[in-house]
């Protein structure tokens, strides 16, 4: 009986380790499928990390196989940055575009995540005329 218990315990540990390895493998795969490349940047590191994290979370929250909604992701990023770092931020998301912009100092980030390119930049806000 004691031998049987030991054998069961050994098998249980083995299965647990298999499960853990599987989970790590899946996590690694998920991480790899959302590779991030910062392609051009004029932005403090904390803001960069914030943008990358926001974009990644948004992509991960989508059901697999769903087509990316460029506008929704752009809106999410712009809103987050407008509310956290003040207006006015602009965000462009897509797989095929070029742009030429003027941005505030320290407010420019161009990166790709998976197959999507994302441009996030800030411009100063002029006071409203009264």
């Amino acid at each position: 009986m004691e031998e049987a218990e030991k054998e069961l315990e050994r098998r249980s540990k083995f299965l647990n380790s298999l499960i853990q390895k599987k989970k790590k493998g899946i996590e690694q795969h998920e991480h790899e499928s959302f590779k991030v490349h910062v392609r051009a940047c004029d932005m403090p590191l904390p803001l960069q990390n914030r943008a990358l994290q926001c974009a990644r979370l948004h992509l991960e929250s989508m059901p697999p196989g769903n087509k990316l909604d460029n506008k929704r992701l752009a809106l999410a990023l712009k809103k987050e940055f407008d509310s956290s770092y003040g207006p006015a931020w602009h965000c462009i998301v897509g797989t095929s575009f070029g742009s030429y912009v003027t941005h505030s100092v320290g407010g420019f980030l161009y990166f790709s995540i998976d197959k999507v390119y994302i441009l996030l930049f800030k411009t100063a806000v002029e006071p409203l005329d009264h």
């Binding site: 460029n70 752009a74 462009i92 998301v93 095929s96 575009f97 742009s99 030429y100």
Partner: peptide
């Protein structure tokens, strides 16, 4: 002024 040109993009801006 800002300008974006392309065949696949969406954006949000002020």
């Amino acid at each position: 002024w800002q300008c974006v040109v392309g065949s696949n993009f969406g954006c949000y801006f002020t």
